[in-house]
Design a protein around this nucleic acid. Structure first.
Lengths: 212, 212, 212, 212
DNA sequence: TATGAATGAGAGTTCATTCAT
DNA sequence: CATGAATGAACTCTCATTCAT
């Protein structure tokens, strides 16, 4: 009955792994996934050798960061489901809360390289699919509640998430945060069910439309 | 009697310059600004040396592509101003039409490096400022027409543009185009003046808020 | 308890550093300071990467070689001071002995580039100034002894050193060595105090005259 | 009876050739023989193409500059022979006068590359040999006159010339000129016949010793 | 096991030389 | 014939990854 490999790490090794992951998360979010490995190691307070012992190459590190990140968002989503009284409110809360998402997005959308890595990893695909399922329940529920416009599907909402949450480099953290909040507000108004809306072009995008 | 240096190039040099610019535009848009110079040269059908003769280094090439691009968008914006019967319509048209913008956005927002280059170039700043002025007239006009919600300013709209138009790597061109159009539709609905809107948080963002 | 960074290198790194310095010394002396870095690395038995890890760029390597070299000459000069019974003899010995000087000279006088690097480095300037001081004491002493002609100063002597010791490329080592020894002999005769000498033109050159 | 190819050049071509040669002489003397061809062309006021039409490659240009230069020195030497009343005086005059030599020296001694080119060109070898013959007559005559020390031969004197006349980069033209004159003075004193001289080591170096 | 040194492939850039205008 | 554009090999430097200490 051996446990998950990560579980068996010695305490210090464990600590190293966590520090590396935390450092990589911060650096990836701020500068993208192409930073020198040495910089990540330094910022984690370990040598490159240690980094490579834990993550055999850059891809593995990117994957680990992504898994960690999707995990957090998924936990957020489930909490929203449990704690909010309507699906519309859960959706809105997730949207407002998930700054975590920014990193997934940054990773997934900024470099074709990172994207290729992520979409080819089954563990990540599983997490993403699970997240899409939760969102799907939000979307359908909110439409049933009459609060989400009926001509969108989960894919539309996910893309809007992704788009709005992408990092805005070069703005001060202050401005970026406020701008993001305002954009989310506008987006939510655009998603709200309303008679005046002209129908959107094309077909509603489902979760499946987001694949490769 | 213009003496623009570009004008004085020999016919073949001119052709090469244009091909390089076109190739760089396509490649930057698809893969970001960090692609090997050799790849750009090859795709333009010239040797690296030629590329470097026209653009002394990568920064110069990025700048040239950006200038070219802002130029096009600015022309679009002016055409919209002249040909549409209301400012709201002009704004909508610019938004729908300016796929060109995608490249500016890609360049400006994807890599911190490209951003630094662009914001430090006065010619580009001038073009950007001019574009913001045109958009400002659209925004104020559309608000006067009662069709654009009053709690946004030009900065908000520009950021939404930027955000929505960023390339979505990894999706097929087909899906990406449709998704973008749908997102724009939702965004426009969110921008439309409506009684039901809750007020947005913070202050309306002006063009000036977009600076460094 | 010195903490000189060089002292803290791991044994193998230390060895490599020394080999690189030795190889560079030989190659710079033979071919000037513009040789491909790869050639230096190969001749030191390491990869380019190693060379660049120790010396961040060519300039740093040139500087390190120059410091090393001035150090040796300075040691020679001090030994001459301590061990010879007169200043004239010390001067003559230094002149005969300091084949080391050839490299400094080669570096300092052959390429404008190397010259610029060296004159802008304070550590090197300090060593050079210290060497000039020792030579100055030789010169003044030997003049007091009545054995060095009175119408020269340290700058004259230093320039003669520099000039005579410059490498003669293309001659066999054998011929070059002999030719240098003969030139030094002639030069010494020219420096010897003698009634028959016509006065030299201009003012005696001091060490200060050698600055930029 | 076609003339020397150079003679048949059209007037403008002739002018270009001369300008290139003059520019190259100046630049080689100041910066060595490794300067970009484009810089030479620019400074001559022609395009690179023109430079290459006249001189098929860099080696040819170096050779042409060297031939031109040896020519001048040889003319100087012959004038000295004709106009001075003793061989010693002719030798001294040549030494003082031949700043021209600086360029030959610069070319011949600074870069192994230039040296290789020069020693392999028969036209240059011929000129050099002719120059050595004239100097040889000076040396033997001056020794017969009892004014030049008997333990040197033409090779020694030529090497001293070469050594002393090499450019001193980094000094102001003012200082460099004065320093050179003073060094020549010391050297001449060292060459003067005198009882006090200790014999030089080794054998007197003849012109033949200067080969490869 | 952790560290940081060594390696070498590859990217950016320069420049000698050729060739179209 | 003059010009300056185009080419590509060579060089400098960086960084992912491996390996000795």
């Amino acid at each position: 009955m051996t446990a998950d490999p990560e579980t068996r790490l010695r305490a210090d090794a464990r600590r190293n792994r966590d520090q590396i992951l935390a450092a990589a998360r911060v650096i990836f979010a701020a500068q993208g996934a192409e930073v020198p490995m040495e910089e990540i190691a330094r910022s984690a307070g370990v040598g490159v050798g240690t980094l490579y012992r834990r993550f055999p190459d850059r891809d593995a590190l990117i994957r680990a960061v992504a898994v960690d990140n999707f995990d957090r968002v998924l936990r957020d989503a489930k909490a929203a489901k449990d704690e909010e009284s309507s699906d519309w409110d859960a959706l809105i809360r997730l949207l407002h809360q998930s700054m975590e998402l920014q990193l997934s997005i940054q990773l997934a959308m900024v470099s074709p390289r990172a994207l290729a890595i992520l979409t080819s990893d089954p563990a990540i695909k599983a997490l993403r699919d699970e997240l899409l399922e939760v969102m799907d329940s939000f979307v359908q529920g909110a439409q049933a509640e009459g609060r989400l416009r009926p001509d969108v599907a989960t894919g539309d909402v996910a893309i809007l998430f992704a788009i709005v949450l992408r990092q805005m480099p070069g703005k001060s953290a202050e401005v970026a945060r406020m701008a993001t909040r305002r954009c989310i507000g506008i987006m939510i108004d655009g998603l709200r069910a309303a008679d005046s809306n002209e129908p959107l072009p094309g077909q509603a995008l489902t979760g499946a439309d987001l694949d490769p």
